[in-house]
Amino acid sequence: MSSIILASSGVLEASEGMAGRIFGLDLQMIVDAGILALAVLALFTLLSYLLFNPARELMRKRQEKIQSEMDSATTQKAEAEAFKAEYDSKLKGVNKEAEEILSQTRKKALKKETEIVEEAKVEATRIIDRANKEAELEKSKMKDEVKQEMISVASIMAGKIISTSINETEQSKLIEDTLKEMGDDTWQS
């Protein structure tokens, strides 16, 4: 117990010696506080240089990157809207152009159809004329052949008549025989 009493008397003495000071500060404590403040300031400066500046630089670069991406996105959006407007206008123009092309194609088709019909008519007329000419040639050729046959028949008959100086019954018989020799088909065609 005596030690407790001694200890409490030491605390009383210490508190009596501090009675003249503010908060119980002495010179050693002020010097320690100044050194501690300088150490904190030096540590803050060192940490600021080693940690805060790179962190600030990283944040600045990130802000610049984000800003450039936002600017790029804005530019791309404006370009996309311009392309969309151009696409819409071209799409409207394509419909008109397609209609014009179809109209021109129809006109060309009608013109070509008319040309083909005219060519066909001309060709048909030419074919008919050629067929008529060939028919006329065949007709005249047949007439010539028939005349040649008649001449040959007549000459045969004349030769037989002269050679046999015969009467009328014999002459009729001779004509019939000649006709049989030549055939009925020759005279009927």
Rank of each mutant, 00 (worst) to 15 (best):
residue 74 T to F: 13
residue 158 A to R: 08
residue 106 R to E: 02
residue 186 T to E: 00
residue 72 S to I: 01
residue 122 V to P: 06
residue 49 Y to G: 10
residue 83 F to E: 15
residue 140 S to C: 03
residue 167 N to P: 03
residue 47 L to M: 12
residue 2 S to Q: 04
residue 103 S to K: 09
residue 94 V to D: 05
residue 156 I to Y: 05
residue 152 S to C: 07
residue 182 M to L: 10
residue 180 K to Q: 15
residue 27 L to T: 10
residue 36 L to D: 06
residue 49 Y to K: 15
residue 150 M to D: 09
residue 178 T to Y: 05
residue 116 I to Q: 10
residue 133 K to E: 05
residue 45 T to F: 11
residue 36 L to V: 07
residue 88 D to C: 01
residue 97 E to H: 02
residue 41 L to I: 11
residue 100 E to G: 00
residue 128 I to G: 02
residue 87 Y to W: 09
residue 72 S to V: 01
residue 158 A to F: 00
residue 178 T to F: 03
residue 88 D to H: 01
residue 45 T to Y: 05
residue 3 S to G: 04
residue 156 I to R: 14
residue 64 E to M: 01
residue 30 I to R: 03
residue 32 D to A: 14
residue 71 D to P: 04
residue 145 E to L: 12
residue 135 A to Q: 09
residue 52 F to P: 06
residue 23 F to T: 06
residue 127 I to K: 11
residue 65 K to F: 00
residue 103 S to H: 03
residue 162 I to H: 08
residue 88 D to R: 05
residue 140 S to L: 14
residue 170 E to V: 05
residue 180 K to V: 15
residue 156 I to G: 01
residue 91 L to E: 07
residue 158 A to M: 09
residue 156 I to S: 13
residue 68 S to T: 09
residue 176 E to N: 14
residue 80 A to H: 07
residue 147 K to D: 13
residue 71 D to Y: 00
residue 78 A to P: 00
residue 98 A to Q: 08
residue 145 E to G: 03
residue 34 G to T: 12
residue 123 E to A: 15
residue 25 L to K: 11
residue 31 V to Q: 09
residue 176 E to D: 13
residue 79 E to H: 11
residue 149 E to R: 08
residue 160 K to W: 01
